[in-house]
Structures are given as C-alpha cells and as structure tokens.
Design a protein around this nucleic acid. Structure first.
Lengths: 355, 355
DNA sequence: TGATTGGATGGAAGCGGTTCCACGAGGGGG
DNA sequence: CCCCCTCGTGGAACCGCTTCCATCCAATCA
C-alpha cells in the first residue's frame, strides 16, 4: 500500500503538501500541484479512509439501522434513502438488527463509525441518545415518534382506525387483529399503535373488543399461525386486520392452504401497501414508504450540513386502498353477535375524525 | 468522548493494560482486570472503532457491492447474506452502484474500508483486482463468472435456453427477447448471457433469430417501453422472453395498459423467480437467489478465516417454473411464419440438451 | 542467600492521515 | 535600503488504539 509519505518522498515534497493537493485546500503552487498529482497517478495512490477518519473525526458515512432490513417495507424505505446518499458523498453503512441484543450493541457501536444515523422503526433510548449527542452524531427517526429529535412518521393509530372502519362499514362485527409481539427489538412498535387504532374504531362503533381476537406473533411471516388459530376458534372472525402487509400476505397463503376463500370466508386488510400487495390484490392502508426514506435522508443530510432540523416532525399521509381481499360478511356468517357486549366497553361513540 | 487514556488514568494503570483487558488478551491479574472493567463501565467507555482499525489494519466489516441494491433480485440475494454476516461479527457495508462511474470509484475506495468484498453482478477488472489483492482483501463474486477468484453463479445461457425452449414447445415461433443494454455498470451482464441462450434455442429449433425482436433497454423498469415497441411491430411476436422478472413484470403492466391479454395475446417468460413473480403468476426460470447470497457469504467468511477458497466455483441449478403467463399461441395469431426463414440460420437442429 | 525466571505492567512507537506552526524567500511600501 | 507581509512549504504533533519491549518484583531454584 502506498502511503502519503511515499508520495511525498517520490515527489520531493513534504507530506503536508501532498495532503493539501489531495484535499484541494489552501495554496499550493501550480507546479508543485502538478508534480504531486503525477506521482499520485503513477503510484495509484488512494488515501486511507480509516486514517483520514481518525484524523479528521469524520467518517463520511452514515449509518442506517433497521430491523430485518430485507423486509419489503424496509426495503421500500431504503429505496428512498439510497439515491440521496449516493449523491451526497456519504457511504451507506447498514446495521441490520435481527435479535434484541443487537439493538443496544448497534447504537453503541455506531459511534465513531458514522457521521449520522438514520434509524428505521427503532429508537435509541435516553442513555443511547445522550451518547450519540455527545459524539455529535445527528439522528433521524423514520417510522418512530420522538420528542427531541427529527422524525418522519405516519399516524399509525389513524391507520388502524381506517382499516377497521372499512371492515365495519362493510358490515363486519367480528374483526380480529393480527400483529407483532412487542419484542425488545422494536420497542413500541407500529403494530401496537395500529392495534390501538383498531380498538378505537371498534369502540367508536360500539363493537366490543374481544381479547381472543387480538393475536400477536413475533416475526412477520409467522402470521400464518395466527390464521390457523383464528380459523380454529369456536366462533371465528369474519375479517382480520393485519398490522402489516407481510403478515396479511402470510395469512392469505395460510388461508388458501386451509381451503378458506378470501374475501368470501374471511376479509383481510393489511398495512403498508408494499409492492407485493398490489400483485396480491390486497386491501391495505397505504403509507408512502419510499418517500419516508427520502425525507429521512434529507433531514439527516441537512443536519450533517449543520442545519438545525431538530424541530422537524414530518407526518406523511395514509390512504385506504381497497382491492380484492375485503367484502361484506356472508349472510349469517357473522354469527352470534355481541354475546358479551352490554354497551361499548369504555369509550363514547364519537364520529370518526376527518383525515 | 472517553478515550483509553482516560480509563487508564482513572484506573491507575497504563493504557497497555486497559487495552489488554478490553481485548481479553494476555495475562492481566484478576484484581487489575476488575478495576479496569469497573472504570470502563462507570465511564461508559467504548473503544473507537476507527482508531482500532487503523492500528490493527482490520476493519471488521465486509463490503457488499451491488448495482441497484433495492432491486428485488438483489434483495433476495442479500437476504441470504445478512444473517451470516450478523452472526460473524462483521459489519455489513453496502456500496450501491447506480451509475457507471461509481463502479470504479467503489472498487478503489473500498480498500481500507473493508476486510472482504462480496460483489454481486459486478466484477472488478484486472487492475482493480490487483489492487484488492495487494491490499489483502479477499473478493467473492456472485452472479458473475471469473477465472481467478471464487464465484457463485448459475448457467445463464442454459437458463435462456430453458425459457425459450418452453415457448418453442408451446408452439411459438415468433419469440422476442427483452433485455438490458450492456451498460458500463454491468459489464458482461446476465442479460446478454441469457440472450445467448435464447439465440441458441432458436437456432437449435431451426427458428431464425430476428434482430428486430431482440430489444434492449437500460434499467429494468423501462421494459414497459419494449412492450409498446413489440406491440407496435408490423408483425408482433406471440411470445417474449424477458431477461429478468423485473422486466417481465414491467411488461405485464404495460401490456395490460395496452389492453393486451397475457397469455392469450402474448406469452411472457421471466427470469429469477423473485417473490413477486409468484404473486403475479409469472412463468419464469427460477434461480436460488437467497442461496446464492448465503454461499457467497460463506465463501467470503471462509476466505477471511484464512482458508484457501480461491478455487471455489459454485454453480447453482435452474428450474423452469410454469405459471400463468405462457400458453400456446392463438390459432392464426402467429401469422406469417418465417417470411425470411429459408432454413435454420446457422445451426444444425440438435435435440435439446438434457438438464 | 543470591541468581534466575517469568508474570504483570507501563509506556513508547507506529498505524496513515490532517493541520497547525514555523520558516524562508520574494515583493512591495515607507 | 530595510522592514514587513504574504505565499509556499516542510514537518511535528496529534487523532485513539494495539503491540512490542523494557522494567520491576516476587517466587523458585541451586
């Protein structure tokens, strides 16, 4: 490996001069500059990024931390991030969190490795944030709310309500929810917020929330199991709201395997509107995934430029996309309505808030 | 930021000792070790990865370089890579190549940033490879053949033949090919190899290769334009073999927009068998994408362990998956067969090779 | 008891850059 | 004619870590 010292020696100048030429900084006479450049080309010299980082304290790379980054929804977000970063001169370093303990590790270990951090669906805790701040590393959150740093989010509660309302309007009363367990990886997850919206919609419609219809499983793909559970119930639901398209699609597969027809036997609504959803004809709550990545990256880049974006709280809009997996319940299919209903559980019946 | 010197001072020991404790190396008395560990915890000390890298010459990260990493096929490969890396203690640094000039940049700039390199669909040239080797960075290629470094590939030519044969067997004679232009980014691309297989299959069947039926466009998504072009032809084809599922799916969309029905008006075969293909019911040539990533990562990790894997040439198998986008051509739909045919262009008619 | 040995430890050198400071030369102004 | 400033430049210090080497001390051996 050729070093800067070698180049300096070869060109008959000092290391400082070579450094100046390479960084295009300060004043170097044209003759010297040319000579150095020639030697650089001749030797094929490439500055050592690590040494440079140590010296300057800047790594010229930004970290993107995400749980299971190969999940469709995360990928679509990344699709928004990548182009911006590519044009910004920053390297994209991906930190994939697949196990809860990796989460903390990552937030600690990024320090010194990146100049900025884009965190998708994951938030650093107080202590981690303090360290990051102390290290001068700006952090932007996507798909996770926070009160002291910039965020790009959607109103998951409203989204859950939207999905559930759609089912209610179709006439369903026996509606299940299929979500993620709140594991250490995610912390307060989108899934639980969407579940809240689901519960509110039911409340508002005066339909009781049945705990046995709220099913949680870890990892998106295992939603297949939820489908089985629901079908096996003494009084199975006529509709399901899945907290993500990944889960909805997994259920669709499982239901098909079980010989159930969608939407005839069961309506299914997802959340995200990933590309697959379109092909699968899934009714879902669409959120601008790619755009979320773009905006997150924009904010981070601004912060890296020294702009103050700490107040930024971008909220993107949601939209219900009705496709082929929802329909009114079959006559009589909804069965014994409200056997434990009395009145609405805990809420007044309010009209749905305009979106 | 607390440094090792600070810890040493606080614990009343030398920096060397702190370093030894942290790296669990050599002999440190139990008492000292405890004291240091206490101070480390108290101060929340985290070693600076950059300084460590500079000092040891190892970065503990591996680079993955890919063109357009958010493309489905690349993602599915990454799905195989990520878990292995996560468990190996190496960071995953992603280098996204979206413009031709980035290609060279990346191969140069990875030096000093990563300990190993996994290159997807992209190969370093002679000079780049020499530099990499000089820097002691092992390189593994996925989806790209090479004679001096480990590779994981499929037989794209055979795959192209498989797809085309399927169409021929259905009775098609007027078969188009939709592929990538060979841009600087890709170099010798999978697309062109698949095209070769297409041509061979036609040759073997005694069907002339019509240059006007071979359409190339950059970027997968633009295949929509190819669909339009083909439809607009005086004598449009009855079938198309697209070099990738991405392109096939784009064509499907375009055809639908044009009011053409698949496979009634036109049969379409893709290549890759990405997840979407299943949902879209696309007939395609399946290759084990995720597995290719896993194997590539395995090879790289082995190389990083010091094993000699330079001879490894893994070749994964292909399989034609027939779904709903292919059917025999409509009667009379295939039109004026062979108006310029005479005899088979340049090849004897051989029987198809067993797969 | 004195020499020997080996384990524990401190600290300097070095990794490859950047940057600041000092210095010399040349030119312009007083 | 001298001084001062500026421009170009060399090189030392520094970034925070690892690692090697020298040192010290206590225990072992003869």
């Amino acid at each position: 490996m050729t070093t800067i010292a070698r180049v300096a020696q070869e060109a008959g100048v000092g290391v400082g001069t070579v450094s100046r030429v390479i960084n295009g900084s300060a004043s170097v006479s044209e003759a010297t500059r040319q000579r150095v450049l020639d030697v650089v080309a001749e030797l094929g010299y490439e500055p050592n990024a690590t040494a440079r980082a140590l010296s300057t304290g800047r790594t010229r790379s930004v970290g993107v931390i995400a749980p299971f980054f190969t999940r469709p929804s995360v990928i679509e977000r990344l699709r928004g991030v990548a182009p911006l970063l590519a044009n910004s001169g920053y390297q994209l370093v991906l930190f994939d969190v697949e196990r809860p303990e990796q989460r903390t590790d990552v937030f600690r270990s990024v320090i010194g490795r990146v100049d900025g951090l884009l965190s998708i669906s994951l938030a650093p805790d107080k202590a981690e944030l303090r360290r990051l701040a102390a290290a001068g590393i700006p952090v932007v959150l996507v798909d996770q709310a926070h009160d002291s740093i910039p965020t790009v989010t959607v109103d998951d509660v409203e989204g859950g309500r939207l999905a559930t309302q759609h089912l209610l309007e179709l006439g369903h009363r026996w509606i299940a929810f299929a979500g993620d367990t709140v594991d250490g990886v995610h912390g307060a997850s989108a899934s639980s917020r969407r579940c809240l919206g689901y519960q509110r919609a039911l409340d508002e419609a005066g339909v009781p929330v049945r705990p046995d219809l709220v099913k949680l499983r870890p990892h998106g793909r295992e939603a297949a199991g939820i489908a089985c559970d629901l079908i096996a119930l003494a009084s199975p639901p006529t509709a399901v709201f899945a907290a993500s398209d990944l889960q909805a699609l997994a259920m669709l597969d499982a239901l098909e395997a079980l010989g159930k027809r969608v939407p005839d036997d069961l309506s299914v609504v997802g959340f995200d509107d990933v590309e697959l959803a379109r092909y699968a004809g899934l009714t879902t709550v669409a959120q601008p995934l790619e755009d979320s990545g773009t905006r997150g990256a924009e904010l981070l880049l601004s912060a890296l430029e020294g702009e103050d974006v700490l107040q930024a709280r971008q909220r993107l809009s949601l939209e219900l996309v009705v496709r082929g997996t929802t329909a009114p319940p079959r006559e009589g299919g909804r069965g014994r309505e409200d056997d434990g209903a009395k009145t609405a559980t805990n809420g007044m019946i309010t009209q749905s808030s305009p979106t």
